[in-house]
Write a protein that binds this DNA or RNA. Structure first.
Lengths: 241, 241
DNA sequence: TTATAATTTAATTTG
DNA sequence: CAAATTAAATTATT
């Protein structure tokens, strides 16, 4: 059963073993790996791997002389040694992407959480401000005094009284659920389209250039009138995913 | 020159070509690819790839019957066809991951920008509130209506004295620059350690389990006493990366 | 020219 | 079959 394995990649080739004296069991030797699957063809033996790994630990980029020596010791071609080191170096780096993704995701979640806090606090501030304002207005109506210096009273930052705060800001948002994004199959790309100074951020999602699949399942348009909409302080949109 | 290529992966093996009548040029046939490098061994021909790609486009998971037929048409083993489709599927998926990563990154950047806006607005709100408060106090305590701007009206320092504002919040942050993260070589992992309700977020970065390399170059501890620290209103930490 | 990083590929292994 | 590896090949860079 499954005797098909004997033809590695071409039907019209035949391999002949050539006895190598003593030193080693070649990669193609079917009896070199007694334990595992025992019919390896391409694989290096555990011994070879162990030696290579050991050397790699010490120096991931050995001199060609050392490679030569290793080749002799392990009964492999210098070329194979070189390639192994190449691949080994590449491998140690290739886990990186997934790791980076997770790191980014964690950062994103943390930032989102932080964003939430800030938003809530913002809401609270707004309410307090509103309260104080109406208070002031009342007292102002009663009293004749004129302590209301609506002009800047020398604070460190422009208090843009009508600029930043009372403007009906709208932040249009399009976000994706990132919790299990790695397992999704959509093909969208995102593009930051506009980010004018400070307060307005528009993130627009577009179909990928290949235009193969739609991705409406996991994408969602989110719009929050974040400065005035009181519902936005109780609904945490990033928890919907 | 460079005649080394003739020994594909083991010194002690010899391949013999067995003439295959008519039907096809096998993968190992050195003359199948007239144009490119002309001494391919393992690679499928452009024709074969084209056919496979065409079929894949229509159906990425064809029936074994179709695979069989393809095998006949292309002069490959059914097993090779199956493997090719497997690999092809895997490849199209890994592209997806990269795409998702970029999407996440864009979202992250957008959120960070948004976060900035919110923070600025927060600061502004705080200032306004502070101002109104001192106004109120003045009018209450001193009804002679003096516009005596005593105390701290000159700086940003807010003495938030009410509600959730004076909780001396501290948000500890550890963030990474994501601009070119895919090309970095660190091996850190991140872990969200604490995220209690609402306002406190701690993100702790730890060394990877392999413990091979430190990553202090790109990681940075950022601490912002975001409700009291006036520096946070002028320094945009996310621009430091 | 060699050497290498980076990418690709066919194939294998494991679950 | 998916997912992870692997040895090798290929391309680009120097």
């Amino acid at each position: 059963m499954l005797a098909r394995r004997e033809q590695p990649h071409a039907a019209a080739t035949v391999k002949l073993e050539v006895g190598l004296p003593g030193l080693d069991l070649d990669t193609f030797n079917p009896v070199q790996n007694i334990r595992p699957s025992s019919k390896n063809k391409r694989r290096f033996s555990d011994e070879q791997i162990k030696s290579l790994e050991f050397m790699f630990e010490n120096d991931s980029r050995p001199e060609s002389q050392i490679k030569q020596q290793l080749a002799n010791e392990l009964g492999l071609q210098p070329r194979q040694i070189a390639i192994w080191f190449q691949n080994r170096r590449a491998r140690s780096k290739s886990k990186q992407i997934e790791r980076d993704y997770n790191i980014l995701k964690e950062s994103y979640d943390a930032l989102a959480s932080n964003y939430e806090s800030l938003k809530r606090e913002n809401q609270s501030l707004r309410i307090q401000l509103e309260k104080l304002k109406s208070q002031n207005e009342k007292e102002h109506g009663n009293k004749t005094c004129e302590s209301n210096r609506s002009g800047n009273s020398g604070d460190c930052e422009s208090q843009n009284r009508s600029g930043m705060l009372d403007t009906d800001e709208k932040i249009t948002f399009l976000f994706e659920g990132h919790d299990h994004m790695l397992s999704t199959g959509n093909t969208s790309t995102s593009k930051k389209v506009e980010n004018t100074d400070g307060d307005r951020v528009v993130l627009e999602m577009m179909e990928g250039t290949d235009g193969s699949l739609t991705s409406s399942e996991k994408w969602c348009s989110f719009e929050s009138n974040c400065f005035l909409d009181e519902s936005s302080c109780s609904s945490n949109w990033w928890e919907y995913w």
